[in-house]
Nucleic acid binder design. Structure first.
Lengths: 244, 244
DNA sequence: GAGTGGTCTAGACCACCAA
DNA sequence: TGGTGGTCTAGACCACTCA
């Protein structure tokens, strides 16, 4: 289990345990929402003390990959909790009102990836990708135009019916139908003016300022799995961010 | 030191220690950049074990309020490190090029706070605030128009000369001149069109899309100390954000 | 009451740094 | 070489949950 500590490859024991737990997550040994073995059981399995397992789980919990529940156990985190809404969709109403988003699918088709898209998703140039376009409506009015690109190989079976069954909660769908869970994302924000196409889609005048959010999402092991471009009307909404 | 554990006010020991350390930081017992006592010294002072002090420091280090340096000691975090640039100014060049920002002060005056501003800064309505306006230039071209508001009572002595001496690094100035260190901030982002005044300030056409960043910054103990509105040209720059 | 995570301690040893 | 933070262990006890 352990290595010589002077080796340049040396990792603390608890990080090696953390890797082993992550491997089990990737392998699907414990599904999202399920409980993992207790700290003492894992300590036995890996032949270390409970404190060491605890420190590994501490880090995974800080990364929101695992969730602790006192008295019950430690669980694989899920996108079905309310809390996640704000984590990956940071748009909130300016007046603090409650969000009631509606999903309107525009298209869902398989095409060949551009060189740029292949690079972003770390797949071979020319691989097939799924392109989804949709509108998110806030109390009936179009708020966000989303353009989503997924590597088709990993997202077999994704189609219009499936997306509509989840009412547009893409991350929940990935998780429940495909066992793919996003653990982090990188976003690039800019302000742009609506072009003719966007203006039509969102019922706006050409040139209306829109918040452009380009996102790449990663699953376990920092593997990019989704590219997304959201164009948002921000006259009555804010993108909320906490710097710490 | 300890309390009855069944009390509703019960806080774990290490959190009580964390509060005590935070109090010392507020009181200025250890200046930004200075080393705090060793874990064993603090354990002696508070009458707990080293492990408990360690856990308190763990949390403060995670919040970037303290900085550990193996073999040397634990230090009060500072805004002078390069790393902080990306933490509070998330605008990066689209081509990944190096940033060379220039600061051009437009105005700095003392006025009475509006009701709204007093609320945001948690000061009495009608208190005096310092209003600063400036441009940030990127290779000679205006990139950001900043409007900054500070409670005058806490920021005595802030004037044009002082700001220029720090070449626009406001947070470094607060820290070095006033001992005020920002530990977190809340930002609200929207896309807006440049009005006549902004268009003139940034040499743009009226209606050009701008990224509006409204920020409230907090010092130790979650006390709001600065309000800021930045309007950014994002044709060649992105606001970079990591969701985790 | 049994099982789980949460806290706290005491002690050992390692890795890093400076004098 | 001595002091600092970093890791690891073993054991005790507390708080929470559920049958």
């Amino acid at each position: 289990m352990n290595q010589v500590k002077t080796s340049p490859l040396f990792q603390p024991l608890y990080r090696q345990i953390k890797s082993l737990i992550t491997q089990s997550l990737i392998a699907g040994e414990w599904a999202p929402g399920a409980a993992i073995p207790s700290e003492f059981d894992l300590a036995d399995r890996y032949g270390v003390s409970q404190g060491t397992v605890r420190k590994a789980i501490d880090e995974l919990a800080a990364e929101k990959i695992l969730m602790r529940r006192q008295g019950k156990g430690t669980y694989v985190a899920t996108h079905s909790e309310e809390e996640v809404k704000l984590r990956f969709l940071r748009l909130v109403a300016a007046d603090g009102g409650k969000e009631l988003l509606d999903n309107q699918l525009l298209s869902c088709e398989r095409v060949k990836a551009s060189a740029e898209m292949a690079r972003l998703l770390a797949i071979k140039a020319g691989s097939v990708v799924i392109e989804i376009k949709r509108l998110l409506l806030f109390s009936g009015k179009p708020l966000i135009h989303d353009h989503i690109v997924l590597p088709a190989a990993a997202f077999k079976g994704v189609n219009t019916a499936l997306i509509e069954r989840y009412n547009g909660s893409m991350y929940r769908m990935y998780e429940s139908e495909l066992g793919i869970r996003m653990v982090r994302a990188e976003e690039r924000l800019t302000a742009i003016g609506a072009d003719a196409q966007m203006a039509a889609a969102l019922s706006l005048k050409v040139g209306t300022p829109l918040l452009s959010i380009e996102r790449v999402s990663f699953t376990y092991g920092d593997k990019p799995m989704e590219w997304r471009l959201g164009l948002c009307l921000t006259d009555k909404h804010h993108y909320l961010n906490h710097l710490e």
